[in-house]
Amino acid sequence: MAPKNKIVITVTGFTLVALFWIYWVSVNPIDERAMVKFISVQEILQTEDNERVRIGGVVADGSITLSSTNKLEVAFTLKEGDSFLPVEFIGTRPDLFKNGAEVIVEGLYQEGSFHADILQTKCASRYEGDLRDASSYNLNEIEI
């Protein structure tokens, strides 16, 4: 066989194997965390399946309660539109986690509450604040 053909065959062969591998990993992820459905709060309240999902929303004002025995344990209500979802999380909370923060949680929905094992915050609203909102500017009242 001419060397040129040999190379063409090897390269094509490799490419096919690689594409199959990428496809295979997409379909059979080794870890349930590899591919997670992102759904809305409303959807999760209606769904019955107990599969791992990811949800985004805002921490409802005044809903954060820390456990009295373990400060790593937190419960809060996630708000998305008019739907509310109680969430429990144990672990280190991101610094930007607070009332009104935009968060993403990932975990399982069981017996009326969402057990999250991943809690991420989106950008700090403070720094993405709307300048047209006059209150954003009144920083001079604070002495720093």
Binding site: S26, A34, K37, F38, I39
Partner: peptide
């Protein structure tokens, strides 16, 4: 993938580090 899956199947899938690690290590 998240964008494609949202466009094609209507569900948004987030792809996490385990996927990238599994695919890219070999």
């Amino acid at each position: 993938f998240p964008v494609i899956s949202e466009a094609v199947r209507g569900t948004k899938i987030t792809v996490g580090p385990p996927f990238f690690n599994q695919v890219n290590v070999p």
